Amino acid sequence: MKVTEHFDRESEPLISYEIIPPKRGGSADQILGVVEELMPYEPPFIDVTSHSAEVEYKQKDDGTWTRCVKRKRPGTIGLCAAIEARFDIDTVPHILCKGFTREETEDALIELNYLGVENVLAIRGDDNGYEKSISGNRSRNEYAVDLVRQIQDMNEGTYLEDLMDAEPTDFCVGVGGYPETHFEAPNLAWDIMRLKEQVDAGADYIVTQMFFDNEYFFNFVDKCREVGIEVPIVPGLKILKRKRHLRLLPKYFHTEIPEELAAEVDAADPDDVERIGVNWAIRQARELMEAGVPGIHFYIMSSADTVKKVVEPMHEEVA
């Protein structure tokens, strides 16, 4: 089932989750165990992140350095297939511009279509220091809007090659939004117009980057509606559970930690930080639900322990 169909058929906000594939050489059992822990809370769909190749420099025995390029976390497609087969839950694999050619993207989408995966999240991806070389007969998507257009072309039966009697795909396409403005954007208005281009190109819904102040989200939604963006906008939440998150989350995700939350965490015993983060996330989620959001998307990555403390009381209230 498509993500938008899940939203349309439910009267209460849905709660979804985002996980990360295991590192190269790791077992899928641990991350499949995370999904199994979430099953009592009836997740409508699970997002699975994707990662392009990265550059690493390793020192050899003679003291010189060698440049290595590899994907640390392959397996997004296989993990989606395993989750859908084992748990009968829809998955949303992330499809990236960065690090992949349009030809590789088309092949990945064909595989997902064969597997019956109906949803994808189209994003540009982070700059990880590796720029994939492109041969003369290949091409790349520079921005998320280009990727959305490629997926919509396939939904209309148009592939990179001129194929006879090509079967169209039928993907529901999500894209990312930034309530606090993408760090490369000059301002929020400019950023939202780029987002509108993605919606006009065929994106079906938006899921936001994490935030800790709901006012950013409410303002973002208002400004999206003002420019004619009418698709569902799903807030993305992260549970702050370690003191170092006060530094790392703003640094890597360009999100602001509210003064009240930061002060409470900074003054707390380290063993008490998770409780503070859980209580903050519960308050955030309840306020968002009362405002009528279509769903809440939790970034949990590789553990369900903390998020269960947030969703369990909410699940009991709905039940």
Rank of each mutant, 00 (worst) to 15 (best):
D269K: 09
I192L: 15
V265P: 03
E259H: 06
P235I: 04
Y252N: 12
I192N: 01
D191W: 00
R225I: 10
R275W: 03
E256V: 13
H254M: 08
C224D: 02
R194F: 11
A262L: 08
R194G: 07
G292Q: 09
D213F: 12
V278Y: 04
V278M: 01
G236P: 00
E197V: 10
F253V: 10
A267F: 05
A262E: 07
L249C: 10
L237A: 05
F212E: 02
E230Y: 12
H245T: 02
K251T: 14
L237W: 02
T208N: 13
Y205F: 15
V231W: 08
V199Y: 05
G202Q: 09
A267M: 06
T255N: 09
Q198R: 13
K223E: 15
E290S: 09
V265L: 03
V207Q: 10
D266S: 15
T255F: 07
L248M: 14
Q209A: 06
L246S: 05
N219A: 11
D272P: 06
V221W: 06
Y205H: 13
A201C: 11
M289K: 10
H245V: 00
P294S: 09
N219G: 14
K241S: 15
G277K: 00
K251C: 06
V234I: 14
G228E: 10
P258L: 06
T208S: 15
L261A: 04
W280I: 00
G228S: 12
I229C: 05
L249W: 10
L237F: 05
R244W: 10
F212S: 02
M289E: 15
W190Q: 15
D204S: 11
I282T: 02
W190K: 12
R283V: 06
C224S: 00
G292R: 08
P258H: 04
P270N: 14
D222M: 13
Y205G: 09
I229G: 01
H245R: 05
E274S: 11
G236T: 00
I192A: 06
V207T: 13
V265W: 03
E274D: 10
K251H: 10
A281W: 06
G292P: 09
H297C: 05
A201W: 09
T255E: 09
D191T: 08
E264H: 06
E260C: 09
V278E: 04
L249I: 11
D222S: 14
Y252G: 09
L240T: 04
L237R: 00
C224V: 01
I229Y: 01
F298P: 03
F253K: 12
A263K: 08
P232L: 11
A203W: 00
E259P: 04
I282C: 00
F253D: 12
L237C: 01
F211V: 07
L249K: 04
D266K: 15
F220M: 15
P258A: 06
I296M: 06
F211S: 03
D204V: 10
